[in-house]
Design a protein around this nucleic acid. Structure first.
Lengths: 335, 335
DNA sequence: ATGAAAGCGCTAACAG
DNA sequence: CTGTTAGCGCTTTCAT
């Protein structure tokens, strides 16, 4: 039932003024040329009494809250988790904390969570924006802030039509790489598999793939783009079109695995080369040959946090777009 | 470049005192019998001027911060993500926010993050505690708080030797169920597979399995407990011991899949019944028959948050332990 | 039903 | 090198 110990408690029992204590604890001892012995005395006393500066009092007049917000479009899975990990890694050894929220791919909920964070005055926000059903357009109105000193934010993982900082994966290049690889190894009939979800990463991956093939003079009839059902399974009506495919690029690894299996079982394909961003736990156990591009989630998170901190600290207003490549590709041979 | 609008701004342009405005915004209008028309006037004005009460000023003298902390032992994956989702679901429509941190299975880091949250005065904390290498004991000193009104916390997922609230999975029962099922279907040689990680969930699952078998009179020679390598692969030296196994329980689904495959490929087993908590994306594609018990992560998170809120609001000091079962088991037939 | 005033714990001029 | 004095924006007696 000890009383709470504040700056005043310390200042009194040290026989100095509160300002001295405040200065010491805000790391301004040097700047104010505080006597070494005074500082030591205060520090010792604080330690002894178990003093902890009050976070709220501090933030109240400094308008720095040392918390940054993360808003994720959906439930955190291992990709989003790795982004979080990267952010946290960058934040270690700073005073910063992460406040996180998810918004179930709803721009409206996204807005609500954003508002909430602005209200709580997070110093900056990282946002992995909602993806919508095919055809719908991501609204950006909620991202505009009319304040003189707007809260900086960084968009991660998905490009949106709004001027901002971005940390993205090399989506287009991933598709391009897949196409090149297929072309180099003599494949003839190509499939690109995606999901019925509107977002830049899906779009750009597929685009990188198909454009590269087309530039190489592949006949459009030999490039099939298939949009899967939401549960990753192929649409029945696409089965025939996919017949004889010998090279398949998918927007992510689980989709690739699912497709390859289903098509093989249906007898629509025999052997197949696969290519996809992402990694699944058991791909090495599966009867599938393919190349997987691990997603640099951790690095993306780190970079996003780094940009954010820079903006917060330096007040820098320029926007930057950073595209990160995959680490070493992982090649799986059919067993 | 609008000036910030505070209680004072409102009170002035409404021609009332700041206290009135404060009362209205703290939902104490009734209690103070504030005139309907005054309230309406203030509310209208606030709306018009875009007033938002200042979170820090509020928390400064109320000691309620409306944030709850989550500390996870490791990088958030889909299980931990589902816990987060559950917590968030419970918190929706409250004022509460989540602050999250991970601690890389290090009790020391765990302590640091905990302290940080206490410093920031989160109203409550949910902690998924660190698991240690086999043989080490989880230290609990950092969890003790000597304050008069300690910050309530709930431990989730893993039991630790500390008096507290717990929200756990029915670990023992999962092992027991597997054993029963194997016995009922006439299996003869049993394996229990675990990881070299010290935590209650692993321990209890295995215990539930082996104890049930022993009680049923199974000879100990027919119950092999195998501790995998940290990368999920079987120890070379365990291969012979596992020869002829026809029923395998593993502490989680990915371990089961990995073991089943490796053993089958090594020719150590032929057909096998498997049982494990968890779900993997491709188990239905794998040549494996087994029963999987989906983890109730979301429900666990929800319950933990619910208990926490109750403690925060009611000040209730009793401890409770909640064990949650798996939802409907998922049965996979070899293809 | 409303107001005045004291403070929550800390910071930031402005004096010395 | 140190102290004094105002606040930050809100809540909360205590009056009226």
């Amino acid at each position: 039932m000890k009383k709470k110990v504040t700056i005043k408690t310390i200042s009194e029992s040290a026989g100095v003024s509160p300002s001295i204590v405040s200065r010491i604890f805000s790391g301004k001892a040097k700047q104010y040329r505080i006597a070494q012995k005074t500082e030591r005395k205060v520090l010792a006393l604080a330690e002894k009494l178990g003093y902890r500066p009050n976070y709220f009092a501090k933030s109240l007049n400094s308008t720095q809250t040392f918390s940054i917000g993360l808003i994720f479009a959906n439930t955190v899975d291992s990709f989003l988790g790795s982004i979080m990990e990267g952010v946290e890694a960058r934040l270690r050894d700073t005073e910063y904390q992460m406040v996180v929220a998810t918004c179930d791919n709803s721009p409206e909920l996204e807005r609500v969570e954003l508002e909430r964070m602005l209200y709580r005055q997070t110093d900056g926000i990282i946002i992995y924006p909602s993806a919508l059903p095919l055809g719908e357009v991501y609204p950006t109105a909620h991202l505009a802030q009319q304040k003189a000193k707007p809260t900086p934010f960084v968009v991660i993982g998905r490009e949106i039509p709004f001027e901002s900082d971005f940390v993205l994966f090399s989506d287009y290049e991933a598709g391009e790489l897949a196409a090149r690889n297929f072309l180099d190894t003599g494949c003839r009939k190509f499939a690109a598999v995606t999901l019925p979800i509107e977002c830049s990463s899906n779009r750009d991956r597929i685009k990188g793939f198909t454009e590269t093939l087309e530039k190489a003079g592949i006949d459009k009839n030999n490039i099939v783009v298939s949009v899967a059902n939401p549960d990753n399974s192929p649409k029945r009506s696409d089965l025939k079109k996919l017949e004889g495919t010998d090279a398949m690029f998918a927007i992510n690894s689980s989709l690739l695995v699912e497709f390859a299996h289903t098509l093989a079982k249906a007898g629509v394909i025999s052997s197949l080369k696969g290519y996809a961003p992402g990694m699944e736990s058991f791909q090495h156990l599966l009867p599938l040959s393919g190349t997987f591009l691990p997603m640099p989630g951790r690095e993306m998170g780190w970079q996003a946090a780094d940009i954010l901190l820079d903006k917060i600290i330096s007040g820098n207003r320029d926007f930057m777009v950073k595209r990160l490549d995959w680490p070493e590709p992982v090649i799986i041979q059919a067993t």
